[in-house]
Design a protein around this nucleic acid. Structure first.
Lengths: 106, 106
DNA sequence: ATATATACCTAGACAGGCGAAGTATATAAT
DNA sequence: ATTATATACTTCGCCTGTCTAGGTATATAT
């Protein structure tokens, strides 16, 4: 894990929730969106992405369903729940607090 | 570990190096300084602090020596090395990059 | 005597991120 | 035909920083 990843650690779930706020989406698409938003400076490793989905779903923050693609690889879509939206809001606030602390300390 | 600690993860070494930039110091004093700077919003757990010292010293980023206190508990002082100063500078830059990425993604 | 503050140390558990490997469909290039 | 590339998901087990919980020791205040 490079230094940037180390500093992004702990934001993975918030990043995923943020993407699902716009629309239901699936792993591959979410990761592409992250790459585009960051001009290819960042992407989630697959294992990281899919283990985060498991945690979020087990916690009731997202739910999943299979897409009905007639061709190509199957897609598992995810939707954010009300609890997920609430946690996202809280995580945004926590980030503001953490940012202030870090700026104070480094 | 609370959410704030989770988001501060990865900054522990940088925070310690920052403190040692001012002057040689020891674990207890460094932690008190962190608490004061943050108005008691944050502190390092002892195990976290001392394991970070071990890593930093093994990596040649700090060095340590025993204080010559005639009374009270013994103190192990730490000093930042040139390599430590260089890493601190790099970590500051990495933080700016990470901050931008996070702001973009959450 | 007891509590509190100062000061350090370590073993083992925990949790998120990751490398590596696998499965499957579809298209483009050789 | 074969190979490469893109799309798309999954799981195992390791790595690493943090934490819980415990320990040691000196000094002062109640």
């Amino acid at each position: 894990m490079n230094i940037t990843s180390e500093l992004l650690r702990g934001h993975t779930e918030t990043i995923i929730l943020r993407q699902l706020l716009d629309k239901d989406s699936y792993g591959y698409e979410i990761n592409k969106a992250i790459q585009e938003k960051t001009n290819n400076q960042y992407e989630l490793k697959e294992a990281t992405l899919y283990s985060a989905f498991r945690r979020l779903e087990n916690a009731g923050l997202i739910l999943s369903y299979w897409g009905d693609e007639q061709t190509g690889a199957r897609r598992r879509y995810y939707a954010i729940t009300t609890e997920g939206k609430n946690l996202y809001s809280q995580n945004r606030k926590d980030w503001e607090d953490a940012k202030t602390l870090i700026e104070t300390l480094i």
